[in-house]
Design a binder for these strands. Structure first.
Length: 465
RNA sequence: GGCGACGUGGCGGAGUGGCUACGCAGCGGUCUGCAAAACCGUGUACACCAGUUCGAUUCUGGUCGUCGCCUCCA
């Protein structure tokens, strides 16, 4: 009963799953510059989805690509005076760090475009063999006129596409809307050999070729940001249908909404990007995940530091609620609510509301019931990829932290151990009514970013606002 | 210009033809050595104008406004 919005039909559709094999392809990044909040949203939101499918006992095959060759990478690496591979490698590592910090599942396969050049060339050949592409002076192009269903995914009309201001009208293309499958290398550009000439793959062909090579002719879900619908996914669909006209290619097209800053889309071209790492370092992966959980994945989501702080506060309420519980599926009502919300096009904001309602009611329940609710809430959040690990602020160095504890003759091993001893010392002062010393300790520990809350079960937390 | 999405209380964000969503913030209180946390209480919001209806935030039509895409984008 999983219902998801399909961008191809523009409607909510019931998903029929064969649990033995669910194939998912997520359009990953072009590794040209550091990941921003928008990349984080796309990866986390589809991570919720994949984790949910696994919860439903699906055998998921998850592939996310890395585009490690394209015009921007060439330009940027030239500006930095390094090889394009070096830039791609460096940025790919940043993406990996971000994905890991956000606790996103690692794809089963994470192919890079440059590792699939042979497959790409064969795929282009297949398109040419079907007379749906042609070779010209600047490259090999897809002949959009030969594909009758072109623009069906994005729902555009041809004359509108042509009238777009950014269409690069090259004289050697049959039609302005034809797009490159293979770009011939200009002086000094990286290239691979091909029967048509030295060059590099166009942006869209790698996905068609890699999906085919890794997952096969048909996949269940193709995911990505909604800014990829046109032209990227439209062109990908055209290529795949051209090569394999009898296959559906993609059962469900899923697209996430954009991150907005003061109402405007965050994007490289707008120059208003927020670097993901800065916020992960400060708030931790769980808080970022919770922030993404607060919006339905297709809606535009506003980003601001205030909203992140709010996410932190709200998430803390949940993590405090479940702090002494083991994650277990104890409460059936709550589990049904969870499935109901997720089945409804991954309505995670609704889920949060339902969980809080249950939490609020739970305070009046007898202990056994309360424990079941706690265990189930924790279980649900762990399914959704939350770790409940204390966020370590990276604002204060380990050395300073050690030095701080040494003042109290505490040998630093881990923050947890040191804080436990620190709290014991302070508690002794409190018992002896040395309130001044106890209060000073509370104030001082703020230096290393730790906030003590006497009434809180946990006793302390990182205070990294 | 074309296509699409959307306009809910201070903010974020669900949902529904008649019943408190929820969270944050705010306000009042309990508790507390203090601070915080926690807990209790507290908010009649659904862009505008018509129409359908016993009744519309929810359906229909229109108006206004916001945002996205239109080959750089997650």
């Amino acid at each position: 009963m999983l219902n998801l919005y399909n961008s191809y039909t523009n409607s909510l559709r019931e998903v029929e799953l064969s649990k033995d094999e669910v194939k998912i392809y997520l359009c990953g990044p072009t590794v040209q510059s550091s990941p921003h909040i928008g990349h984080g949203r796309s990866s986390v939101v589809f991570d919720f989805f994949i984790r949910y499918l696994k919860y439903l006992d699906c055998n998921v095959q998850f592939v996310r690509n890395i585009t490690d060759i394209d015009d921007k990478i060439i330009i940027k690496s030239a500006q930095q005076n390094i090889e394009f591979q070096e830039l791609a490698k460096k940025v790919a590592a940043e993406f990996k760090d971000a994905y890991d910090s956000l606790n996103c599942l690692t794809p089963d396969i994470e192919p890079k475009a440059t590792e699939y050049i042979d497959e790409i060339l064969n795929y282009i050949k297949k398109i040419l063999d079907k007379d749906m592409g042609y070779v010209s002076e600047s490259g090999v192009y897809f002949d959009t006129a030969a594909f009758s269903d072109y623009l069906k995914l994005s729902g555009r009309k041809l004359d509108e596409v042509i009238s777009g201001t950014r269409v690069d009208i090259l004289d050697d293309k049959k039609a302005p809307e034809d797009f490159a499958l293979w770009k011939f290398a200009k002086e000094g550009e990286p290239y691979w050999e091909s029967v048509w000439g030295k060059g590099r793959p166009g942006w869209h062909i790698e996905c068609s070729a890699m999906i085919n090579a890794i997952l096969g002719k048909d996949i269940d879900f193709h995911c990505g940001g909604n800014d990829l619908i046109f032209p990227h996914h439209e062109n990908e669909l055209a290529q795949s249908k051209a090569a394999y006209p009898d296959n559906e290619f993609v059962k469900h097209w899923l697209h996430n909404g954009m991150i907005n800053l003061s109402g405007k889309k965050m994007s490289k071209s707008e120059g208003n990007i927020k670097i993901l790492k800065d916020y992960i370092d400060q708030y931790g992966g769980d808080v970022l995940r919770f922030y993404f959980l607060r919006a339905q994945y297709r809606s535009p989501q506003e980003f601001s530091e205030e909203l992140l702080i709010e996410s932190k506060t709200t998430y803390k309420k949940i993590s405090d609620f479940v702090i002494d519980s083991k994650p277990q599926p104890k409460n059936d009502e709550l589990l049904s609510l969870f499935e109901e919300c997720m089945n409804d096009d991954l309505n995670t904001p609704k889920l949060i509301g339902e969980i809080f309602t249950q939490m609020n009611n739970a305070t009046n329940l007898e202990n056994g019931m309360l424990d079941d609710i706690k265990a189930t809430v924790k279980y649900i959040f762990e399914i959704l990829g939350f770790t409940f690990k204390k966020n370590v602020t990276k604002k204060v160095s380990i050395e300073d932290t050690e030095k701080f504890f040494n003042q109290y003759e505490i040998i630093f091993d881990s923050v947890e151990q040191a804080m436990s001893e620190f709290l014991k010392i302070r508690e002794k002062h409190r018992v002896e009514k040395n309130y001044q010393i106890a209060d000073e300790m509370r104030t001082n520990v703020l230096e290393i970013g730790i906030k003590i809350e006497d009434g809180n079960k946990d006793g302390w937390s990182w205070n990294n606002n």
